[in-house]
Amino acid sequence: MSDIWEGLRAAAWLLISFDADLWEITLRSLRVTLTALLIACVIAMPLGALLVLRRFWARRFVIALLNSLMGLPPVVVGLIVYLMLSRSGPFGVLNLLFTPTAMVIAQVIIITPLIASITHQALRELWSEYHDLLISLNTSIFQRVRTLLWDGRRTLLTAALAGFGRAIGEVGAIMVVGGNIDNATRVLTTAIALETGKGDFAMALGLGMVLIGLAVTVNLAIHWLTGTERAGRW
């Protein structure tokens, strides 16, 4: 019990003194996750919109693929990315294994299906509302995608936040492809795993508090957004 109190006190001190290590790890976590999130959104959101708008032959296949990708254990994604990037793998020459870029790639693969799927569901409803008008106004497919993404932006923000929450808390895949290397690929989750293993509870708890803080903020934001979505109907 006293261990935990000790740990909490030390952790609080690390936080308020802006401990250099903790600060660096937090920033790296944010950088990796936000980069992955940006790339995933750029892929997933137009894809989600196209899945609503276009009845192409592979549509069902893509939706099924997204759903099964969502169920993939992250550590398996990590393993696959590892094999792709390892020296003997097809992308070995790029020398990306154990870099933040490798972690970004793994996270993109993990959250893109999630974001695309939420986008698809949200925009399907919006499209059924807008369908007649947008057909009548002779809109191009590009204009339709833009209109749906713009008018559905609140739900899309929810999708992005969900993706962020998933990515920032992910540990299995980025441990495998990043390697948890000090000053290079160590992020909040992998550092917590390491410090806990070492028995340095102060650092582990300090990092944990940052992570919890981020997760709570994101969830409150989602809650608030979906609330206003229902109240405002847009």
Partner: peptide, 13 residues
């Protein structure tokens, strides 16, 4: 041409 639908389609704007 333009069309005004039986239930007007109002955009979320």
């Amino acid at each position: 041409q333009s069309f005004v639908f039986q239930t007007p389609v109002i955009m979320r704007r």
